[in-house]
Every structure is written in structure tokens, then in C-alpha cells.
Design a protein around this nucleic acid. Structure first.
Lengths: 243, 243
DNA sequence: CGCTGGATTGAGGCCGATCAACTTCAGTGG
DNA sequence: CCACTGAAGTTGATCGGCCTCAATCCAGCG
């Protein structure tokens, strides 16, 4: 696998990026620094650089020392982990406005690799900068914990027992996290059905079969990577175990 | 269900409790306050009171506003959540030296109830006290994040696919979290097999059958609630999908 | 002593995995 | 423009693991 990072250093508070920050969870933390003076050694910029990844490019590699958070601005990533028996399993997906890296604070190193599923743009946040920032701005403390707690509560599909429940929950969650308009609910799956199955602990065949079944029931419109949620309420009923 | 909390206020730094703090994850955070002066309004004690729960007593109730962490000193708790279809499912177990409550920061209220499985002793930590404490002691910042991140990484049995993998992983994890001596590996299950099954998304019958199978294989010794791990390495091989 | 809730064990059925064949589609190069 | 290729998705047949339902066992307790 290729591992290459394009290193475009730039200031976070230039116009185009500020626009990107609009829906970013870390916006408050980052922007707070703009109101401060320029004494860099005392109050370092939170974000030193951003990275643009091509499809299949790696953002971080398992076993590497943990030093950075990554805030995803555009695109999508998957994190993978090696099982003891050698099989690679997918731990999670990350989309725009989400943060990757909390999970590595405790062990002190990443125990997963993160790969771009599409062309992806991320902000790299040095953990030490983050700590300093929060220490000098105590009101950010609460918000940081809030964000971490929020992320802890996402993506627990595996608590669901049946395959159709998991797939339905996954589709609904995707539609929310991809920030779609309520009206369309139409999008391209950034990952393969193989990846979806791996993540949900199902086989790719089962995922395909369930897509087909949902289509026959008129709940979705799917063809390859493109998908459209027609009956979101019905899908939710499936998740709830009613249907 | 009965909901009653016995309210025994006392100072955290009395002799018997300091002994209890020895293996507590929050010890460093709590003890730091002892070295300060007594101006209570500026630097409040982190722990205001502790609670002693009887078996089946509730510690916190779903939908109640989130205000407190709970550090478990002795005993065991389970957290339960109502599914949309009305079934109650178990979200997690908590044992001595573990912390309950992070999960509620984001929604701002508990979306689970916590019930004592045995007689249980907990420290109640007001969240506001915690925030103030961390703000006035920036070096605690890092540790708090470390602890939260650590807790995020525990108890992900549902990523395992087969029933024997989940049960084996659960037993190994229990043996670690109950702080047993390496030599014995013998303990009482604080929860019923029904609860284990609910937590692992298996039926109680399946759990029982797997206990029996492990027993026949000489991996464990089990009778009702009492259990003894005979071949921990073999159990780990099962978790890893080798056996 | 019988009662009760949990644990155990057995028989049968369903769901998802496995294996295999086939189709579809994007990319490539002639 | 079309043929080729490889990766991903689709579909069918079979198998095995876990659920379901039911009967029984068993320890604790009034």
C-alpha cells in the first residue's frame, strides 16, 4: 500500500477555509485563537496544516505513535484493524465534519489504519496544541468533552441482531452523517458493499440480498453505489424491530 | 422498580476511603484537591458524597438530566436501555475502579438506567465540580481525556461474530476487570446468564450451552454463578478465531 | 415442604454464511 | 468503436449455528 501525504501548509483563517469551517465541530476551538495576539510560542495555532488525500491513500498507520487528531472537511475515510487471525476488519467510517483520533489517546498509538475512500481533505490538529489550547481557554473544556462524548454515542450498529436491522440502521445513519437535504435522500455510497458487510459483520452477499429485498419492498432505490432512501420511516421501523 | 439512594455524606480524605482510592482511576484528580486550602467556594471538593446501593437498587434513571459521574468503588452495576419495541437491553457492566457517566455528557441526560447487581459503593462526582477542578488544574486535563479514551476502548464484544467468541471474550474481560489474582482466576458472576446473553445479543440458552461446552473441553469450571477459568490462553485462541 | 427464578438440556426451524456461477460495469488499449 | 479484463455486485443451492419453544433440574427461601 502506498503511503504519501501531500503537505500543503497554510493559515487556517484564510477565506476559503473559514467557509469550510462553518459546519465543523471544532470550529469554536479553532476560531478562538484568531481573536488572540500573535505570540505563537505561547498560543500556537491549533491547526498547522491540512492534507489532501487521494482515494486509497493512508492517513495514519496502525502502531504509529499518536500525535494528531484529524478533522475531516471533505470526503470519507475508513479505519481498519488487523484481527489476530490475520483478517482485516473495518472499525468505522468517518465523514465530513467528524473527528478521527480520540480512540488513540488511551493506548498512545493508533491501533488502526485510516484510508481515504474518496478524495479527502482533513485538518491535522497536533494533540499537544489541542491540550494547550484547551488549558488556556477553559471554556473549551466543556465543549471538547461534549464532542468526544457525542462521538462515543455514534455507530453502534452491532448492538442490533438481524442483518436487515443493521443494514437499515446503517443507511439511515449514512443519510444523516452525509448531511443530505431531507427532500432528496439520494447519495453515492463512498464504500463498497464488501466494506459495509465487513463493518456490519455480514457477508457482501447478505448486504446485496438485503439491498435487493429493500428495493422490492419499495423502501430504497439502489443500483451499485448509488442509492436513494424512499421510505425512511419504514426503514426506521425495521431498525426498531417492528417490521 | 424501587428508587432509593442512601445519602451518607462524608469527607473523601478520611482513612478508610483513602485506602479505597488506591486503585481508583480518579484518584489523582480527587487527591489533588487535598493539597489545597479550604476555601470551598473557589475550589470545591470533587466528591461531595458517596452512595451505598443494595442489590437491584437504581443509581440513575433514564431521561434524567445528566449532572454526575459515578466512580464505582465496590460492587457491580449494569446499565439498561429501552428499545423501541419495548424490550430492555443491557448496554454495559461497570465494576470497581470504573467510571459511569461519560456517555451522558453529549445528550445531556442519561439514556439508560443503572442498577446495582450486588451491594455497591460509588463516589458521586458532580460534573460541574469536575469541570472546575480540571480547569484549575490543567495537568489533569490530559489524564481525564486519557481515562475517557480508555473507557471508549473497552467492551466491544459485539464486533465478534460467533457466540463462543463473545462468551470467551466476555469471561476473559471479566477476569481482568474484576481484578483477580492471576493464580486463581475464580470468581462469582455478578450477573445472571440471562443478563450476559442480553448484553452479548445471545439467548440465555446459548450462553448456558457454551458454558457447558467450555466445561467439557476443560477450559472452565462453572456451576451456576461460580466460575473458574482453567485455560485462559485457549479461551483467547477462541476469541481470536483460531479454535 | 413446596414455591420460584434461574440454569440446563433437547428437538426443530430459520437466518445468514459458504460456495459457486453469472452479470454488470469501469478502465484500458487496440 | 469494440474487445478484453478485472473488480464488484447479483443470484441460487446448500449447510451450520443460533433462536425458539418446551420440559426438566436445581438451589435458595419462606
Amino acid at each position: 500500500m502506498s503511503y504519501q501525504l501531500l503537505k500543503h501548509y497554510f493559515m487556517i483563517n484564510t477565506a476559503p477555509n473559514r467557509a469550510n469551517c462553518l459546519r465543523c465541530n471544532f470550529d469554536a476551538v479553532c476560531t478562538s485563537h484568531e481573536q488572540q495576539d500573535e505570540s505563537a510560542e505561547k498560543k500556537p495555532m491549533m491547526v498547522k496544516r491540512y492534507l489532501r488525500l487521494q482515494r486509497k491513500e493512508l492517513l495514519c498507520i496502525s502502531q504509529r505513535k499518536f500525535n494528531h487528531f484529524y478533522v475531516i472537511r471533505e470526503g470519507a475515510l475508513k479505519t481498519t484493524q488487523m484481527e489476530a487471525n490475520g483478517k482485516e476488519l473495518i472499525r468505522g467510517f468517518y465523514f465530513a465534519n467528524e473527528v478521527l483520533g480520540y480512540e488513540a489517546i488511551y493506548p498512545g498509538h493508533y491501533d488502526f489504519s485510516a484510508m481515504a475512500l474518496t478524495e479527502t481533505l482533513v485538518c491535522e490538529i497536533p494533540y499537544e496544541n489541542f491540550l494547550k489550547s484547551v488549558n488556556t481557554k477553559p471554556q473549551l473544556q466543556k465543549q471538547a468533552l461534549y464532542l468526544i462524548s457525542k462521538q462515543m454515542n455514534t455507530g453502534s450498529y452491532l448492538a442490533l441482531t438481524t442483518a436487515k436491522q443493521r443494514v437499515a440502521a446503517f443507511l439511515i445513519d449514512l443519510s444523516i452523517r452525509l448531511n443530505l437535504r431531507e427532500s432528496t435522500l439520494e447519495f453515492k455510497l463512498p464504500m463498497s458493499q464488501q466494506d459495509i458487510g465487513n463493518y456490519l459483520r455480514l457477508t457482501a452477499e447478505t448486504v446485496s440480498r438485503i439491498f435487493s429485498r429493500f428495493q422490492k419492498l419499495g423502501l430504497i432505490n439502489s443500483h451499485r453505489q448509488s442509492i436513494q432512501l424512499l421510505e425512511k420511516e419504514q426503514l426506521q421501523l425495521i431498525v426498531d424491530g417492528v417490521l
